[in-house]
Amino acid sequence: MANTLEQGTAAGSGRRPGTPPGDGGTGPVLEITDLVIEHRRERSREMFRAVDGVSLAIGAGETVGVVGESGSGKTTLAMAATGLGATGSGGLRLLGRDLRALRSRELRALRPEVQVVFQDPHGSLDPRQSVRSGLRELRGLQPERTSWIDDEALLEQVRLAPELLDRYPHQLSGGQAQRVCIARALVMRPRLIVADEPTSGLDVSVQADVLELLRASQRTAGASMLFISHDLAVVRSICQQVHVMFRGKVVESGPVDQVFTDPQDPYTRRLIEAMPGARWRARR
């Protein structure tokens, strides 16, 4: 099979191995309509709406950002999109298939299509597994999907030295561990990458590198991306579309430049003003 990402993409522009039938590849990768997710508050009967009537769609190859302060329901939304968390009520279609109508076996077959990159890279790796044995396990789980690239080439894709294959997570820096997480996501050749605050846990000096890597690999792999962040500058640099969330609701959405240069909602305006260097940027 193809050995580099570019070739892999060329082969993948048709139907990929493991892609469920009935997916033309033309519709949106992820389609959320009027999604409501409620959590039960601890020790009470009261329900708390973490996500309140959110709608968004991600087309093939598109990067959509969701911004908001902590507690605004961003992560709940992301987990629902992957089918890993609570799915609530409302429309939730992944690759044209209703996530809730799937039986557990079908859901498990669909899951590799969505890969997640979390905020805490060390928490996303089993401390008892070296990088190599972790990748070996992924390959065992999805032999066909992952055979397009070998370990060394994969690490090269995320700009890591092959020596790191035998390291354990605690022997990796935050940036290195996050690159390993990205590699673990890429090896599955997902149609959608959900990045939940992927740079927030990293030192400022490596944030830009990891972000650039994420953008580049998403582009070459031809995957779509749902990018969750509280950092407006980061969202602006990486996304085409952005949704601003506030207390579970989307208060504003649209193309990134439009939302940032001409915010309509007062909350969005406040967020943008609070950006470091906002005044300077506005004058420019």
């Binding site: 890993l84 590799p112 997640v116 790796l125 401390p127």
Partner: peptide
């Protein structure tokens, strides 16, 4: 509750596998 469990689930790992290969060793 560790995130690697979610990651493994996303890779299509079964619950039995997660328990035997990851939870118990930890």
């Amino acid at each position: 509750e560790r995130q690697f469990v979610l990651g493994l689930r996303a890779a299509g790992a079964s619950e039995v596998r997660i328990v035997l290969r990851h939870v118990v060793p930890n």
